[in-house]
Design a protein around this nucleic acid. Structure first.
Lengths: 121, 121
DNA sequence: GCCAAACTTAACCTATTGGTTGAAAGTACG
DNA sequence: CGTACTTTCAACCAATAGGTTAAGTTTGGC
């Protein structure tokens, strides 16, 4: 498939249901029915959302037997993020935050190295 | 204003005209008419796009005299990026860049980084 | 072979989006 | 003061989005 446009990716991300689905798929691959379970909308609606996510390249779907498995595909997400990082100021802000984190991590390192060694998961 | 939702931010980013406007505002603050100049659509349409960007918190607008100046506001963008970073694989990629920056920033700053202090997981 | 399970498709509905044009509002200036 | 400039508002339009229900299509299993 041609790599999806930023238009498509951002549009896909703009819906809370779809973002929630992506979060769920972080944990594990899921069947369509299982994806739909926590939501209050019809299976057909979920099926549409999954199509949107697939067209955006954010997930892939593979049919095994009568079950269609959905899998997270983080590449598209990375494309979107790269676009964001093309913003100078934003990058600056980001790096500032980094520095702040860094400084704090370094200072407190003398005291409690283990607790401050990295970002929380 | 209440901090705009991810819905609003991503929806704002999903339009190519609006992303182009953001790119332009990276260079400098601009008046509405000047923002509109390179585009092939009506001024009213641009005005609407600017409203969308403002509601998303991606830009701010300040009126001085009869000119309304548009200014990039990268905070909302950062929110969106933070959401993205909650995605495991993607985070890994990003943290690599973090580490690289960190190392370079510290060395050029004259600080003494302890090489083991970087975020790593 | 038949029924149920797992999805998708089709037809439909309403609200929103992105665009238009034309008029209005506020402001600078000769 | 009047006029031109900058921007928004209002009314409108076509297309899309997100949802519905009902019917259709594969596939697995008794």
């Amino acid at each position: 498939m041609a790599t999806p446009s930023l238009d498509t990716i951002f549009a896909a991300l703009s819906d809370p249901t779809r973002r929630a689905i992506l979060q769920m798929l972080l944990e594990d691959d899921m069947a369509v029915t299982d994806v739909a379970e926590p939501f209050d909308i019809s299976l057909a609606a979920i099926s549409k959302h999954l199509t949107v996510l697939t067209l955006a390249g954010l997930i892939s779907q593979e049919k095994r037997g009568r079950v269609k498995w959905c899998k997270l595909e983080p590449d598209a997400l990375r494309d979107a993020s790269i676009w964001m990082q093309s913003f100078g100021q934003f990058e600056a802000v980001n790096l500032e935050a980094f520095e702040a984190y860094l400084e704090q991590a370094l200072t407190s390192q003398g005291k409690r190295p283990d607790e401050t060694a990295g970002p929380k998961e």
